[in-house]
Computed example of a mutant assay.
Amino acid sequence: MRTRTIRPVIAAALGAGALATVLVATPAQATEYPSNLKIAGVQYDAPGRDSNSCTTGNTKAEFVTIKNFSRTARMNLKGYVVKDAVGNSYTFRLNHYLEPGDHVKLRGGRGTESDAGNVAYRNNCNFIWNNDRDTIKLIKPGGAAADTHAYTKAANDRDGNGFITFHS
């Protein structure tokens, strides 16, 4: 998440001795949350023509990747929530362990939530991520933010392939 801060600077007006308040914008700053689990990337625009059909659609090709960036800690996704800007959400209901450096792709479509193949399915064939802009939130079981990223196609997807990387 990026925040922009504005700091007041008080300067003496030359020759008049009066004080003037000037607002100076500082560069955008990233806010980092204390979490080993981060949103590593998103395939927000599934390849092909968008279709919500569970049998012939391409919602399985839309996904968000969550990665364990810890060097030593094994992390359990149980209770973590992934949300978009308007509140569509998915909660990991089962134990889903990520070893250090491991990741899971949370996909649309039907399937299981298991450790097999580093994939979990939302069991919903509707798209969740907007193709022009959205916000992805990863929320810890207690409700605290683990990671948040807002994107726009124009600003963040320079090659236009529908995929954006957030953390390397």
Results as ranks from 00 to 15, higher is better:
I39A: 03
N156W: 13
A116K: 08
T65K: 02
T31W: 09
G41L: 09
N88V: 06
K140Q: 15
D84K: 01
R2H: 13
N58M: 02
F63Q: 03
V86H: 08
A12P: 04
K140G: 09
A13G: 12
F69Q: 12
A20N: 13
T59Q: 12
N58E: 09
A46C: 07
S168N: 13
D84S: 00
T3N: 11
V9H: 12
A150R: 13
V64Q: 03
V86L: 09
K105P: 06
G101A: 05
G41F: 06
V64I: 09
G87T: 03
G117T: 04
G57M: 10
D84G: 01
G143V: 08
R49H: 09
Q43C: 07
D157Q: 04
D115R: 15
S70A: 01
L19T: 14
F92S: 03
G101K: 07
R133W: 11
A11K: 12
A150K: 15
R49E: 12
D147W: 00
F163L: 07
A12D: 14
G101S: 04
T152I: 15
E99H: 07
D50V: 12
T65M: 05
N95T: 10
N52L: 11
Y33M: 07
Y90W: 08
G101F: 04
R71C: 02
Y151D: 15
H96T: 09
T55Y: 07
T148L: 13
I139M: 04
V81M: 05
G117N: 15
S168L: 10
L23T: 04
E99K: 09
G160V: 00
D115F: 11
D147I: 00
N58W: 03
A150C: 12
H149A: 10
L23Q: 14
V82C: 01
V104S: 04
P141G: 04
T5A: 08
W129T: 00
D132Q: 15
A20G: 12
L14N: 15
R74I: 02
R158P: 08
K137P: 07
P27E: 08
L138M: 09
R93I: 02
S53L: 09
T165I: 06
R110I: 12
Y80K: 00
N131Q: 14
N68P: 02
L37Y: 01
L106N: 04
A146V: 00
N88Q: 12
R110W: 10
A28V: 15
L14Q: 14
E62C: 03
D134T: 00
A28K: 06
T72S: 15
K140L: 06
I66A: 04
K60S: 13
V42E: 07
N68A: 01
F69C: 07
V24W: 07
I10G: 05
T31Q: 11
T56D: 10
D134P: 00
N52C: 11
R93T: 11
A46K: 06
G79F: 01
F69W: 06
